[in-house]
Simulated scan of single mutants.
Amino acid sequence: MRLVLNLIWLVLCGLWMAIGYTIAALVCFILIITIPFGIASLRIANYALWPFGRTVVDDPEAGAPSLVGNVLWVVFAGWWLAIGHLVTGFLLCLTIIGIPLGLANFKLIPVSLLPLGKQIVPAP
C-alpha cells in the first residue's frame, strides 16, 4: 500500500514540492552562511518525494542553535513552503483518492516550518 501511495504522491504533488525544497536549498547554498539550511531543505525534499513509510522525529542532540535557525528559516523560507503544502493538501482533499495525500501534505507543514533539529526515520 505504501508503494502505491508513494507513486501516486510522486506524480500528483511530491515532485513539485521536492523541486520547491531544492530551489530553497540552492538559494541557501549560494549564500554560503546558510548552508545548514540548504542541507535541511534537501533532507526535506527527499522526504517530500517519498513520504509514506517514513516519519519525522525530534533529534535528541539538537539544541539552541536549531531553535535560532528555525526562527530564521520560518521568516525567510519556511512559510512559503508551508503555504505550498497547505494549498496542495487542500486541493488533494477535494477528491476521495486524494484525501490520504492531502493529509500527508498537512503532515509535512510542521517540518517545513521548523526543519532543523529533526530526523527522518522509517515508520514502525
Rank of each mutant, 00 (worst) to 15 (best):
C93K: 14
L10S: 14
G102H: 05
I97R: 01
V74S: 05
K107M: 09
V87W: 10
V87M: 07
G38D: 03
A48S: 15
A25G: 06
A104Q: 14
S66R: 00
L31G: 12
A25C: 09
P36L: 08
P115E: 04
L7K: 01
M17I: 15
G89C: 08
W79A: 11
W9N: 03
L15I: 12
I97L: 15
G102C: 10
F90N: 11
P110S: 11
I23F: 11
H85K: 06
L103T: 06
T55S: 13
L12N: 02
F29V: 06
G38A: 07
T88G: 13
I8N: 00
I23W: 05
I23C: 12
I83W: 10
G84E: 01
V68A: 14
L86P: 01
K118V: 08
A77T: 05
V11H: 00
I99D: 11
W80P: 02
A40E: 09
A104Y: 00
I96G: 11
C28T: 03
A18K: 02
V75L: 15
G20R: 05
P110G: 09
L3N: 07
R43W: 02
I83Y: 10
V71S: 13
L67W: 12
I8D: 00
E61N: 15
F29P: 00
I35E: 04
L101H: 09
A123V: 00
I35Q: 04
P36W: 09
W79M: 13
P115Q: 09
A48M: 08
M17E: 05
L94N: 09
P110D: 09
A104T: 07
L26N: 11
G14T: 02
V121D: 13
L7Y: 03
C13P: 01
L42N: 04
P51Y: 02
V4A: 15
A45Q: 01
